[in-house]
C-alpha cells in the first residue's frame, strides 16, 4: 500500500481565472477513504479555497457528483483504493457550466425538473384532507418504485452525450421522474406532462446510448424509462389517428 496518492483537481475561480487549470495535491492514502474524504482533508488542512458540494457522505443527498478520471461518480462512493496507483483526476460534472472549481450551475436542471410537474396531480381540485388518503396496492407501488429512487445527482446528465451536445434535451433523470408520476396509480396528470415529455426535446432526443443507466448509483434506469415512454407516445399517436381512438 502506498503512503500517499495524487489528486489532480480542476480549479476555476470566476473572478481570477480566464480559464480553468489543474492543480495536483498529494493526500495520505487510506484504505477506507473515498475521493470526498480526500477533498475534505485538502480543504481542511491544505487549501481552504477548494470549492465543491457535499452533504450526506452516504449516497443519499446526491450533491457530491463529480467526474472521477472522466467517469461521473458520487465522490462519497468512489474509493481511493479503486484508483491505485493514481493520479486521480477530479473535475466538475461534464456538460454543465462551472461556477467555481467542482461546483456546477444547476439552473438548467432545476428548471427542467419543475417543467414535468413532479408531484401528484389530481383532476378534482376539491379533494381535501378529510376525503382521506389515496390507497395503493403493493403491485401498484412496484410499478414506479424504481424511478422514485432518484437522488437528483445528475450523474446521468454528465454521462449523456445527447445532453452534452443539445442543451435543450430534457434529459434522463427528469424524464424518468415524469415516468415515475405517470405510472403512479394515484396520479391523474399524464396529459399535463406529455407536452414536455413527448416533445422533440423530450424522449425523442434520446438515441438510447444507455450510459445514463450504467452510471446511475441508484439503479433508476432512466434509459429504460425513456424507451417505455417512447412506446406510450407512439401508441398515443396511433390512437389519435383513429376516428374514435382519442380517449
Amino acid at each position: 500500500m502506498p503512503d500517499t496518492i495524487t489528486l489532480e483537481l480542476f480549479r476555476y475561480h470566476p473572478d481570477r481565472d480566464e480559464r480553468p487549470r489543474f492543480q495536483a495535491y498529494e493526500v495520505p492514502f487510506r484504505e477506507d477513504w473515498v475521493v470526498l474524504d480526500a477533498l475534505n482533508y485538502l480543504k481542511d488542512r491544505v487549501d481552504g479555497s477548494l470549492t465543491y458540494r457535499w452533504s450526506c457522505r452516504m449516497g443519499v443527498c446526491g450533491s457530491c457528483g463529480m467526474m472521477v478520471n472522466g467517469y461521473p461518480k458520487l465522490t462519497c462512493a468512489a474509493f481511493l483504493r479503486d484508483y491505485l496507483p493514481g493520479p486521480i483526476r477530479v473535475e466538475p460534472l461534464s456538460g454543465f457550466p462551472v461556477e467555481r472549481d467542482m461546483v456546477v450551475v444547476l439552473d438548467d436542471f432545476m428548471q427542467k425538473l419543475s417543467s414535468v410537474k413532479p408531484w401528484i396531480i389530481r383532476e378534482t381540485a376539491a379533494e381535501t384532507m378529510a376525503s382521506g388518503e389515496y390507497r395503493q396496492t403493493p403491485a401498484q407501488l412496484a410499478a414506479f418504485k424504481q424511478y422514485s429512487m432518484c437522488i437528483n445527482c445528475m450523474l446521468c446528465y454528465a454521462a449523456c452525450p445527447v445532453y452534452q451536445h443539445e442543451e435543450q434535451f430534457v434529459g434522463p433523470a427528469v424524464l424518468a421522474l415524469a415516468q415515475r408520476y405517470n405510472l403512479d396509480s394515484r396520479d391523474q396528470g399524464n396529459s399535463q406532462r406529455y407536452p414536455v415529455v413527448w416533445a422533440d426535446d423530450g424522449i425523442w432526443d434520446c438515441t438510447f446510448v444507455g450510459e445514463c443507466s450504467a452510471v446511475c448509483p441508484k439503479h433508476v434506469d432512466p434509459a429504460g424509462a425513456i424507451q417505455q415512454a417512447k412506446i406510450q407516445s407512439t401508441v398515443g399517436f396511433m390512437r389519435s389517428l383513429l376516428p374514435f381512438g382519442n380517449r
Binding site: 476555476y12 470566476p14 473572478d15 481565472d17 480559464r19 480553468p20 472522466g70 467517469y71 461534464s94 457550466p97 462551472v98 461556477e99 467555481r100 450551475v105 452525450p161 452534452q164 451536445h165 438515441t207 446510448v209 444507455g210 450510459e211 450504467a214
Partner: peptide, 28 residues
Amino acid sequence: MAKPFHRPHSNTWWLRRGPYRVFMLREW
C-alpha cells in the same frame, strides 16, 4: 458578477469510452 465557465465540446467524445464506441458503431 462571476462568470460561469463553459467547457468546450470535443468531437471525439465517443472515443472516450467503450459503450460510446459501440453506440457510434451502431448508428453508423
